[in-house]
Amino acid sequence: MSAEISNDDPDVEVPEVSRRGFLSTTAAGGVAAGVLPSSLAAGRADASAGRAAPSGGQSSALSVTVNGRRHQVTVDNRTSLLDLLRERLALTGTKKGCDQGACGACTVLVDDRRVNACLTLAVRCEGAEVTTIEGLAAQDGERDGELHALQRAFIEQDAFQCGYCTPGQIMSGVACIREGHTGSREEIREWMSGNICRCGCYVKIVNAVEQAARGGRD
């Protein structure tokens, strides 16, 4: 896992020091490594997520909008959208579970469609609009910071335990509701099956999606 989070790349916005920054610094110091949840330890970034791009046409410049903010970055072609978000843009809400398309923890919206960020090469996101869990809450005006109806439903329904799968579940749920695949609990279960919950919170996850869908707001 990359211990770097401060950003010396002039074209990337510098985030504030976050819990994640603290965690990775501590882990790099060898103190907290033993208490990191194994799911986090498993979330190794490709070496390719490092900032130094190789020479010889194996990196590309790219402009991508994430949660309404435009970023200009140069990425190693191997970088996944997931690693770009987490390692470069410090948007660590999106999780890495399997890095193989098999768990859904990395679900984000690209141009309003839900996709697995781990199997999406960042270089292919030129000009794309990406929405992550950090971009769901209202971002302006009086309602600034107000949670999305599905985020509130997850809290009200207590639809998680460890929370690792939750950002992916919520992003997937938002798309599932927009797609209209919420006619019955069975339909919700089938159309949410691309998101695995290791803690087995499925019943309450379906409750939350159902509640938000019936609320008719997104």
């Binding site: 996709v115 697995n116 199997l119 999406t120 997937s172 798309a175 695949h181 949410m192 099956s193 691309g194």
Partner: peptide, 9 residues
Amino acid sequence: SASAQLRNM
């Protein structure tokens, strides 16, 4: 086949 996310890609 696969999942809603994968089928979108």
